[in-house]
């Protein structure tokens, strides 16, 4: 479904992403794990079209998308929940969700809003509230609901567990499982390797801009190197 081949991204002189290749198949949950600064967010933002790679290619459902601007990537069904949630803090919850449906025809917005409110009843209770006043967990739900408004076939999540209490992390991952069960393919970037590997089908391990390991998530969860480097054992 998504195929990334040999991309390189630079920030000025810093070679942030080095010859990255990986793929996500229809119906999978794939995770990219790695320490802070390994280049995980840069990869997602390159797929989303915020950055462009001068080499290699990115294909989505057989179409080359590496040169497309972000709004065209989204229109193909590839949405991202960015790192740090990046909700529009001065807008209401509902306006945030409406922004999520920005590329959809106006007539379909109301139905999608209802879907999101059904999945996240907390957002429904707070639809008129200014988004900046929500708690961290609610903001994460809003960021996810906002991305779902675009009806993506592939949802990319960047550190959805960041800064959340363990109970909320459980809740967010439960939602990820539900979205997956409902037919959404998921590309998950996480520092919380334990949670990410337990939910994913396959995983790639990143170190300083390079993929150093890949395989079924269950196997990586048992791998000694992964356990010592990322699971704190």
């Amino acid at each position: 479904m998504l195929k990334v081949e040999g991309i390189n991204v630079y920030y000025g002189n810093i070679h942030a992403i080095k010859e990255i290749s990986f793929e996500v198949n229809q119906g999978e949950i794939v995770t990219l794990i790695g320490a802070n600064g390994a280049g995980k967010s840069t990869i997602l933002n390159t797929i989303s079209g915020l950055y462009h790679s001068k080499t290699g290619k990115i294909e989505f459902e057989g179409r080359s998308i590496g040169h497309l601007p972000p709004h065209k990537v989204l229109a193909l069904g590839l949405a991202q929940v960015p790192e740090g949630r990046r909700i529009f803090a001065r807008m209401s919850v509902e306006e945030n969700l409406e922004m999520g449906g920005y590329t959809r025809p106006g007539g379909e917005i109301a139905a999608s809003l209802e879907d999101v409110y059904q999945r996240f009843p907390r957002l429904s209770e707070r639809r008129k509230q200014i988004a900046g006043t929500l708690s961290g967990g609610e903001q994460q739900m809003l960021a996810m609901g906002r991305a779902l408004m675009a009806k993506p076939s592939l949802l990319m999540l960047d550190e959805p567990s960041m800064g959340l209490a363990p109970l909320l992390v459980e809740q967010i991952f439960e939602i990820i499982r539900e979205l997956h069960a409902a037919g959404t393919t998921i590309l998950l970037v996480e520092q919380n390797a334990q949670m990410a590997l337990s939910v994913a089908d396959r995983a790639y391990v990143l170190e300083t801009g390079k993929i150093v390991m890949e395989g079924p998530a269950a196997e990586l969860l048992e791998d000694d190197k992964v356990r010592s480097a990322y699971l704190g054992e």
Binding site: S48, R86, Y102
Partner: peptide, 23 residues
């Protein structure tokens, strides 16, 4: 309006607005 919302979104966070599909 939709366009007005897009303007506010861009002024708050240009990158996030782009990820929402705002040109």
């Amino acid at each position: 309006t939709r366009l007005g919302r897009a303007m506010r979104a861009v002024s708050e966070d240009m990158g996030a607005a782009q990820l929402m599909g705002v040109n």
